[in-house]
Nucleic acid binder design. Structure first.
Length: 439
DNA sequence: TCTGGGGTCCTAGGACCC
DNA sequence: TCTGGGGTCCTAGGACCC
C-alpha cells in the first residue's frame, strides 16, 4: 500500500497511512536527490572528439535541415542558442558553431553508466529521462554521511566513471530537488534543508516550476504573478477558479510540494510504457500518395516491431498528419483486440489516412500505438489462424532485422515497389507479398 | 525564428449503459 | 413527455518535458 503524506504549511509533513486500523500520523522527511547531466549530448560528443571542447557545438543536425537543437554547448549558448530552437535560427545566431547529428546509441550507453553509479548509492533510482534521475537517499546517512557529503561523493563518482559533469539538487521533495539542480548548474551541488523551501523558491520566476511552460507563464503574468513567492501567497481558491485542478497543483508546487497538495514523493520504479510512436517530417512537403503510403508502412513497421520487442499489444492506433501551414490533426481507431502486427497497423493507418487527408501536401506523418496491453484479447478462429501465420513470418523478419539492421527487411519498401528479393528467410506465403494490383 | 521526435498528462464532449 | 445522473469508453486537441 502506498502511503500518502499530507502537508500543513511548508515545513512539516504528516504521513497518513492507508490502513484505517492504524490511522497514525507519522512524520516522514525524505531526502531526494535530483541528478541532471550538464549539456549531456554535447559532453558525450566531446568525449569522442576532444577537439570539440570549449567550442560552440550544436547537436541536432545540419543547419540547412528541418529540425531543432537537441543540445547546445555552453559556448554556443553564449550566442543565444538553446535547445528546441530551429537549426536554421541557431545557424543565424552562431554560424561558426559545429553542427553534429549526434549519436543516440552513445547517449544511451553513457546514461547506463550513470545509472549504475546511482544504483550503487541507492536502490531507489528513477531515471526521469536519458540524462536525469531521482534518488531516494532517505536513511543513507550511516552509509554516505549527511546529504551534502553524499551528494559530493556521488558527484565525484559520476565524474570518475564517465568523465562527465552533472549537477545535483538535494531537498525533501522531488520538485524542490529538481529546481535545485537547475539552480546548481553547471557542475554544482545545491542543498535546500527542510524548512528553507519557501525562502529558496520565493524569488524564482514561475517558469522555473516544472509544468509551467510558455502558456501558463503568460497566463500567470497576466494576473501579475511573476515569481513563485507571488504564487505561494495567493488564495488557493483563486488559482482553482482560474486554472481548475491544475491551479490547485500549482498552489502546492509554489510551496514545494510534489503533487496537488499531496506529498507524492515516492521514487518509483520504471513504470511501463503507455504508448509507442514514431513520426517523420519530410525534408520537403509531399502530396505523393505512394511516398506517403510507403512512409506510413515504414512507421507502422517500426511501431509494430517495438511492440513485439516489448511484449505489448496495442488496441488504439493513431495517425498524425501535419500540413505545410503546421496545422495538425490526429485520428484514432480503437480495435476490439490488441495487435502487434505490421499489417494491422499498416491497414489501420492507411484507412485513417485516406478517410481524413485533405489532399494538400503533408509535412509530417506519425503513427502512434496506445491502450497497450500484455494480452491480445479475443480473436475469432479465422483471425487467429491468419495472425498465427503472420506472427511466424514476423518473428523471422525481426531476427533478420536484429542481424542486419532495420533497413534489411521492409514491407514498406515492398509496397513502394522497391522490394528487392533479399529476404530469403521470409516465408513465401507472406500475405503482404501479394501485391493486390497496387503499383 | 519557419518550427524534431519521443513521450506524459489533462480536458472536454459525445456515445452508451444503467 | 424535453426530462436525471453517474460511470466508462472513446476521440481530438493541447500543454509540457527532455
Amino acid at each position: 500500500m502506498r502511503s500518502r503524506v499530507r502537508t500543513s504549511g511548508s515545513e512539516t509533513f504528516y504521513g497518513l497511512w492507508s490502513d484505517p486500523a492504524t490511522m497514525v500520523d507519522t512524520a516522514i522527511m525524505k531526502t531526494i536527490f535530483h541528478v541532471d547531466m550538464d549539456a549531456f549530448f554535447v559532453s558525450v560528443e566531446e568525449l569522442f572528439d576532444p577537439s570539440l571542447k570549449g567550442k560552440p557545438v550544436v547537436v541536432g543536425g545540419k543547419p540547412d535541415q528541418r529540425g531543432v537543437v537537441s543540445a547546445a554547448s555552453y559556448a554556443a549558448r553564449k550566442y543565444g542558442v538553446h535547445s528546441a530552437m530551429p537549426l536554421r535560427t541557431a545557424y543565424k545566431l552562431c554560424p561558426q558553431a559545429i553542427f553534429v547529428e549526434g549519436h543516440r546509441g552513445r547517449y544511451t550507453e553513457y546514461s547506463g553508466y550513470v545509472f549504475e553509479v546511482l544504483r550503487s548509492f541507492s536502490p531507489l533510482v528513477e531515471m526521469a529521462s536519458i540524462d536525469e534521475a531521482y534518488l531516494d537517499m532517505t536513511g543513507s546517512e550511516r552509509l554516505h554521511g549527511p546529504p551534502m557529503m553524499a551528494a559530493h561523493k556521488l558527484h565525484e563518482r559520476i565524474k570518475q566513471r564517465t568523465n562527465l559533469n552533472c549537477s545535483i539538487g538535494v531537498a525533501c521533495s522531488r520538485l524542490v530537488a529538481k529546481i535545485c539542480s537547475d539552480q546548481a548548474k553547471p557542475n554544482g551541488v545545491l542543498f535546500i534543508p527542510p524548512g528553507a523551501e519557501a525562502r529558496f523558491l520565493a524569488p524564482l520566476e514561475v517558469r522555473r516550476i516544472p509544468g509551467v511552460g510558455k502558456v501558463t507563464e503568460k497566463s500567470l503574468h497576466s494576473f501579475g504573478i511573476r515569481r513563485i513567492g507571488d504564487l505561494a501567497h495567493l488564495d488557493e481558491r483563486f488559482l482553482e477558479s482560474k486554472f481548475g485542478k491544475w491551479g490547485l497543483a500549482l498552489a502546492g508546487k509554489a510551496r514545494g510540494l510534489d503533487a496537488g497538495g499531496w506529498f507524492d514523493t515516492d521514487v518509483g520504479f520504471g513504470d511501463e510504457a503507455k504508448s509507442i510512436s514514431h513520426e517523420h517530417t519530410y525534408m520537403e512537403d509531399t502530396a505523393d500518395v505512394r511516398v506517403i503510403e510507403a512512409s506510413l508502412a515504414k512507421l507502422s513497421e517500426m511501431v509494430a516491431s517495438r511492440l513485439r520487442e516489448s511484449g505489448f499489444f496495442a488496441r488504439t492506433i493513431q495517425l498524425k498528419l501535419r500540413y505545410t501551414d503546421f496545422s495538425t490533426i490526429t485520428r484514432a481507431q480503437t480495435l476490439d483486440h490488441g495487435t502487434q502486427l505490421d499489417i494491422e497497423l499498416i491497414e489501420q493507418t492507411r484507412k485513417l489516412f485516406h478517410n481524413n487527408w485533405n489532399g494538400r501536401p503533408v509535412r509530417l506523418l506519425g503513427v502512434h500505438a496506445g491502450s497497450l496491453e500484455h494480452e491480445e484479447g479475443q480473436l475469432n478462429l479465422l483471425e487467429t489462424e491468419k495472425q498465427e501465420r503472420w506472427k511466424k513470418a514476423l518473428s523471422a523478419v525481426d531476427r533478420i532485422r536484429d542481424k542486419f539492421g532495420t533497413s534489411s527487411v521492409s514491407v514498406a519498401s515492398a509496397m513502394k515497389g522497391e522490394f528487392v528479393e533479399r529476404v530469403h528467410e521470409t516465408p513465401a506465403d507472406l500475405p503482404g507479398r501479394k501485391k493486390k494490383g497496387r503499383d
